[in-house]
Design a protein around this nucleic acid. Structure first.
Ligand SMILES: [Mn+2]
Ligand SMILES: [Mn+2]
Ligand SMILES: [Zn+2]
Ligand SMILES: [Zn+2]
Lengths: 135, 135
DNA sequence: ACCCTAGTTTATAATTATTCTAAAGTGAAA
DNA sequence: TTTCACTTTAGAATAATTATAAACTAGGGT
């Protein structure tokens, strides 16, 4: 994704393209493959890569703003930190608890033959599959 | 599960059956259906139900001891708190994010027809399915 | 171009969940 | 009974996240 698209992406979701947001967005979205991260890891990587340091609170604010805008999704993994995902399409994950690493699985690579019907009065929003790995 | 079995369960896993552990174990394991809880919710319920109050640190200690002994499992759900589960068999969950409620799904009620092979050098430990609910 | 202001960033405090510490208490082996 | 390793406990410490409120800024209106 190019910088012009980054600006479009921000503006179209009502987010003023500030220096900090553009820098974070470029870091997150100008890449080929899905990126999974925690706020802590993102902060470290940004600090390493970039000259100007962005306040931690801003990283929290920005990541949440991007999530609310639908540009990031949140992935549930065991542990105390919240994981985010640049892949916002419906998909599944391998999870390697040794390395705390997530790997995407395309929705088409998992076929579920049978699931129970939702409880009374509830509907199924989506189905998430986690394949936990070991060595 | 009866009290005598509770004592057996504790002793057989090298846990001295103290007053606090027995009380928590009875609360958790003397029931028909699976119980999903957080330390906070367990603490509230124990305080309400019981006369003697157990220190929060003891509840943390005990829950972890039970988990290590294989009497509880940990369930990953979105959010900041850790969820525990008295069902330690391989099974799946409905998750109602409105109520933060987990509902068991028997392993046999989910049939997965196709999953990708594990990444290089890794093996599949287990597969967990989460069915997220809406109203 | 300059103002103006709502939106944003920032340092820091506050909150929440959990773990650590170390002193006091206790189950059970001998 | 005595003894002591194990356990409980209150409170401090840590870790992740959110709240606060003052300073800053993007960008529409003039
Ligand atoms: Mn979690
Ligand atoms: Mn989490
Ligand atoms: Zn992903
Ligand atoms: Zn369960």
């Amino acid at each position: 994704m190019k910088k012009i698209d980054i600006l479009k992406k921000l503006r179209s979701s009502g987010l003023r393209p500030t220096k900090q947001r553009v820098e974070i967005a470029k870091f997150l979205f100008e890449r080929e493959k899905t990126f999974h991260f925690t706020v802590e890891s993102l902060n470290k990587l940004l600090t390493k890569k970039s000259a100007s340091k962005i306040a931690l609170a801003t990283i929290y604010n920005t990541v949440h703003a991007f999530k609310t805008a639908g540009h990031l999704s949140e992935v549930e993994v065991r542990g105390n930190k919240t994981y985010f995902d640049t892949n916002v399409s419906n998909h599944h994950h391998f999870y390697d608890s040794d390395t705390s690493e997530l790997i995407d699985i395309d929705a088409n690579d998992v076929i579920i033959q049978k699931i129970p019907k939702a409880p009374n009065g509830k509907k199924i929003k989506n189905v998430e599959v986690f394949i936990n790995l070991k060595n």
